[in-house]
């Protein structure tokens, strides 16, 4: 029996993981979320700015990590739109513009049709060069961004008046799935020029960004849990708790809880089998 379990076909484990993810989704399992100080710091960074502040939203992720980062990007755009900030979108990842388009469609065009492109929000699109782009635009944005994503001359965009570099923004929000991402924004924008940066990142990145907290990075949302905490703060503040599409992070925490429990169970089970086998080997004649 022990041998059978030890050599369990991995497809059974895959099936268990499938069920662990599928059941909470099908049954709409939701659990309460208590925001941590880091999520509160991110919320405060956006909330404490006066309406009309200039916020640069750098969406450096792709469809692969959309499941983990999409909800927090949605919450960031929602928060900025509710607060009445001017939103400037850019991307250092080639498919970043599609992520920006998704959020614009999902939040701005759906719930804020009165916001005008070029006056309230603008998509500056993707630029290759990774941290090299940040290095240039922190001192002169127009060296690299002469047009927006649609090819409109930047000088013709009303909300670009008075923006000479990233230093003219009141806040940089970065949603990052890797390199280039929050780390580069901290290293090349926040640290040398004192530009306030807050971010959201994938779970595997979060431990690498903790060393920058709190001086260089006041707040950080780690993975879907961070998104759920931030979502809660935003929907509570703006009374949106009944708008389902703004609770996506909270919804995705259901499968995460069950999947984490399964992982713990599998680790314990694996170790029980391991010790049982060792015991058998020790007493084997």
């Amino acid at each position: 029996m022990l041998e059978y379990v030890a050599r369990l076909d991995r497809r059974w484990i895959f099936l268990m993981m499938l069920l662990a993810v599928a059941i909470p989704i099908l049954f709409q399992l939701r659990f309460p979320e208590t925001p941590t100080p880091l999520a509160k710091a991110v919320f405060d960074a956006v909330e404490n700015l006066p309406p009309g502040s200039k916020v640069l939203l750098a969406f450096d992720y792709d469809p692969a990590s959309e499941g983990e980062l999409g909800p927090m990007a949605t919450a960031f755009v929602l928060h900025c739109a509710k607060k009445g900030h001017k939103m400037y979108f850019i991307a250092l990842w080639p498919v970043g513009p599609q992520m920006i388009d998704d959020q614009i469609r999902k939040v701005i065009k759906t719930d804020f049709p009165n916001l005008v492109y070029g006056e309230d929000y603008v998509n500056l699109g993707f630029k290759p060069g990774n941290e090299g782009v940040i290095k240039v635009i922190v001192t002169d944005l127009r060296q690299l961004y002469t047009t927006d994503d649609k090819g409109v001359n930047i000088d013709k965009i009303p909300m670009m008046q008075g923006i000479r570099s990233v230093q003219d923004f009141d806040l940089v929000i970065n949603v990052s799935a890797g390199y280039p991402g929050t780390k580069e924004w901290v290293q090349y924008a926040a640290t040398p020029y004192g530009i306030p940066v807050v971010g959201g990142c994938t779970g595997v990145q979060a431990p690498l960004l903790y060393p920058y907290i709190p001086d260089q990075l006041p707040g950080l949302l780690g993975a879907i849990k961070g998104a759920a905490e931030y979502e809660k703060l935003v929907v509570d503040r703006y009374d949106l708790a009944d708008v389902g599409r703004y609770l996506e992070g909270l919804r995705r925490m259901g499968p995460q809880l069950v999947a984490h429990m399964l992982m713990i169970f599998l680790i314990i089970a694996g170790n029980v089998i391991y010790f049982a086998q060792r015991r058998q080997e020790r007493y084997r004649p």
Binding site: L8, R10, L18, P63, S65
Partner: peptide, 23 residues
């Protein structure tokens, strides 16, 4: 396709946790 590739990590991590994460 990319979302699937990323999502498959959960399955492989679960399998690895069962087989390799030993005290």
């Amino acid at each position: 396709l990319t979302a699937t590739m990323f999502a498959m990590l959960a399955f492989y991590v679960a399998s690895a946790a069962f087989r390799a994460f030993r005290a």
